[in-house]
């Protein structure tokens, strides 16, 4: 990732609310993982969520596409409330893309098949169109020449870019990133971050759990700090890093910035 400032003309936050989380609580058995989480996300926002491990940040974004169930409160995505209604869940999952820490590509399918699987079986796209679209997104993440290889033949950075392309093939309106660079070798982090920056420049709504503070400064319009299952503090990146309000945020920032 170059240190030069990036073109931010495409990043526009609108008034339209796409995600609304109200008084959400979640427990794992006795353990209270998420405590009264409230969050409103507008279209076009790029939100970076950080916090110590075990603070509930991954769990929170996994609640947004129902990979985790919440037990109290409400989550509305694109105006649809997440309940046990399977139809609603599938509808929301089609609109929300997700990128995982460990890529989770399907090892028995080629890169191209990974990208066309969901469009073909969920959106019922004709194979040729799905493949064209997949090639378009694979070109965008700069690996069209790997289309016919299997995930096991690619490097970590390449795999993560395939995972991003795979999500984009469903034309999601929101993208969730769950520590997308944590499992990568240092030299591969930038290629993934560059891809994510490009996405942001095109106006994608993004929620990203990451410790890449450089990325947060450049791209995010809001940084959220979580600890102990609560949102402790949220602010614009510049303000967040230079003038943190709570003690816990200060401690966290000093730990990750001075290592």
């Amino acid at each position: 990732m170059s240190e030069a400032a990036i073109d931010t003309s495409g990043m526009k936050v609108t008034d339209e609310v796409v995600i609304e989380i109200q008084h959400m609580h979640k427990w794992y058995g006795e353990f209270h993982v998420l405590k009264n989480v409230n969050l409103t996300v507008n279209r076009g926002e790029r939100i970076v969520i950080c916090g110590p491990s075990g603070s509930g940040k991954s769990t929170m974004i996994r609640c947004i596409n129902r990979l985790e169930e919440h037990q109290q409160g409400h989550i509305l995505v694109d105006g649809i409330e997440l309940t046990n209604d399977l139809k609603n869940i599938d509808a929301i999952r089609r609109e929300v893309g997700m990128v995982f820490q460990h890529f989770n590509l399907f090892p028995h399918l080629t890169v191209l098949e990974n990208c066309t699987l969901a469009p073909i079986w969920v959106r019922q796209t004709p194979k040729k169109d799905a493949e064209e679209q997949a090639m378009h997104f694979l070109s965008k993440v700069k690996i069209p020449d790997q289309a016919h290889k299997y995930p096991g033949q690619l490097s970590g950075g390449q795999q993560q870019r395939v995972a991003i392309a795979r999500s984009l093939c469903m034309n999601p309106r929101i993208m969730l990133f769950d520590e997308p660079t944590s499992a990568l070798d240092p030299e591969m982090i930038s290629e993934v971050l560059d891809t994510m920056i490009e996405l942001a420049q095109e106006g994608m709504t993004m929620l990203c759990v990451t410790h890449e503070m450089g990325f947060a400064r450049k791209v995010a319009n809001r940084v959220i700090f979580m600890d102990g299952g609560e949102i402790i503090e949220q602010n614009e990146p510049e303000e967040f890093f230079t003038n943190p309000q709570s003690e816990r945020t200060k401690l966290f920032l000093s730990q990750i910035l001075n290592h």
């Binding site: 596409n65 990979l67 399977l86 599938d90 509808a91 999952r93 089609r94 929300v96 893309g97 997700m98 995982f100 460990h102 989770n104 590509l105 399907f106 090892p107 028995h108 699987l117 969901a118 079986w121 969920v122 995972a163 795979r166 999500s167 469903m170």
Partner: peptide, 26 residues
């Protein structure tokens, strides 16, 4: 791995199709 099921679900693939297309072949 559970991640495979999660990835398929996150793409909006239904439970039975996830079994058919992702879990059983592996």
């Amino acid at each position: 791995s559970h991640g495979q099921t999660e990835a398929a679900h996150a793409l909006g693939i239904s439970n039975s199709r996830t079994l058919q297309l992702v879990v059983i072949p592996q």
